[in-house]
Nucleic acid binder design. Structure first.
Lengths: 279, 279
DNA sequence: CGCACCTTTGAATTGTGTCAATAGCAGTGG
DNA sequence: CCACTGCTATTGACACAATTCAAAGGTGCG
């Protein structure tokens, strides 16, 4: 569902089903074919690229530097971010294996990237990448579709940053990572957090303290379990999903165990709400 | 500098110089050539598209609906937004003449769009648009570059939403619109606001009241003038720019007239700041 | 000139940031 | 194996920026 800025895994298109229909719609199938071709392109690029290794904390690229290389993440996790002049930081995305890094047509990188742990990168000189785009006309289209997906994800993140409360942000974040796991291998119930609380805070527009407090609150509510600081378990996915989307607050709805008088009230009063289309 | 989601005016590439160097760098020139070709593509599309008229408040497209058509804005201003289940709204961008609307490769639109005033749209069936991409291999690349620019703009907006104070948000917003004007015709000192305070609030992650109060504050500080609610004048661009980027707070820096004890203190304490690369 | 909507201003409330201190955990070295 | 060091995470107390509630101007239009 998420990922980030020009970087979404090429497998994003064949992501979690979301709904529960058994069969894929024609459109979905088409998307999968597309993703498969793109995967092929990326597989090829990975082969001709130069493999490079990085350790936790190492800078992979810096905002403002000439965008001379393009990379595919082979292994590990990466954070990309922008800094304000006074040092305030906004992490615009976390990238994982298969995601693209540093794709741009501007002269310089528009963000910085840092390894969250051990990272393997497959790097390609920009010129070579652009040559590939020329040689394979279909490739540009695939990347365009990818960018389109990225853009939609960015908009979703804007909703989170601009309109969600701390609780809703954390719930959304947890579900986001969970969906990621689901789309790959695991069951999506146990989630690994390769990033620090500060990273999470800078991604969600909060502070470390608030992130910590909010995790604790969700834990006390019985919705998640904190195995260790870097490993959590989802105990009540429905409750989290409801919270994340700002659905009608726990009116003891579908779920049985009434959510204990939980006041995660929305940020905006009713007069600030807009009419929701009947659709 | 901004614009938004898959929609940036194709003239964005030849945007305001920003710096003050007299000559364009080679890279910039290349970008201009690129933009020119893209403009040609778009000009062609406009010709074969169907022109359609809308009035203020009319919905141009709805989030979740099948993305059947693609459009170029011929005239007028448009807001695109996403709604939460409870009606909270996040406007992810304002679009103007020349901007693209509804470009996606997903089955459905990921956002809604509404006319801010009288709007003329040049619409193209999605299939026809995709056929064009096939016929003109270079076109996909141009749109890819465009999307890349959009993505960078989206990240910039995330910094605003996640890390800026109300004052900084408004200052950034005003400058953003000013830069837009600059890149076209006017001097960029007088700025037209075709959107309401509520729209601005939903774009910046604030409430109407806060937007109003903040405009008043900037006015009292002598940095802007409010001719009418929909027309403002920039009186001190440097002060606004400094505020917008979170530069060192008014320590009576370069500017002469000391900013009256202004406490627009940053959102994060020093221990929450990150080291800024010497670059 | 009166309705409808938008904007501005005031007063009170509160979610989240700030400051401060303690707890947890990994790695190092004696 | 344990003390020591350096981080990161958690928790508490308090402050404040921005929201909520409320009401008074403005402005445009039929």
């Amino acid at each position: 569902m998420s990922r980030a800025m020009f970087s979404t895994s090429y497998s994003a298109a064949k992501a979690p089903n979301g709904g529960a229909q058994g069969l894929l719609s024609g459109e979905r199938q088409a998307a999968n074919v597309c993703a498969a071709i793109l995967a092929e392109d990326i597989g090829y690029m990975t082969k001709i690229a130069v493999s490079q290794h990085f350790s936790a904390g190492q800078t992979l690229l810096n905002e403002g530097e000439p965008a001379s290389r393009f990379a595919i993440i082979g292994e590990g996790a990466v954070k990309i971010y922008k800094l304000m002049l006074d040092g305030r930081r906004q992490i615009t995305g976390f990238l994982f294996a298969g995601d693209l890094l540093g794709l741009t047509f501007a002269p310089d990188y528009s963000y910085s990237a840092e390894a969250l742990g051990e990272v393997r990168l497959h790097r390609l000189p920009r010129q070579q990448f652009e040559r590939l785009l020329d040689e394979r006309p279909a490739m540009a289209r695939h990347f365009l579709a990818l960018a389109s997906t990225e853009l939609a994800a960015a908009q979703t993140q804007m909703v989170l940053l601009g309109r969600k409360s701390a609780d809703e942000k954390i719930a959304s974040f947890v579900l986001m990572l969970s969906d990621r796991e689901l789309s790959r291998d695991r069951n999506g119930r146990t989630i690994d957090l390769p990033m620090t609380r500060t990273d999470i805070a800078d991604y969600l527009g909060l502070t470390t303290e608030t992130v910590s407090r909010t995790f604790t609150r969700l834990k006390n509510r019985g919705w998640i379990a904190l195995e260790t600081a870097g490993l959590i378990t989802i105990l009540d996915r429905d409750a989290l999903a409801n919270l994340a989307e700002g659905g009608d607050m726990p009116e003891t709805g579908g779920r049985v165990f009434a959510s204990p008088g939980f006041g995660a009230r929305p940020i905006l009063r009713s007069s600030h709400r807009h009419e929701v289309r009947a659709a």
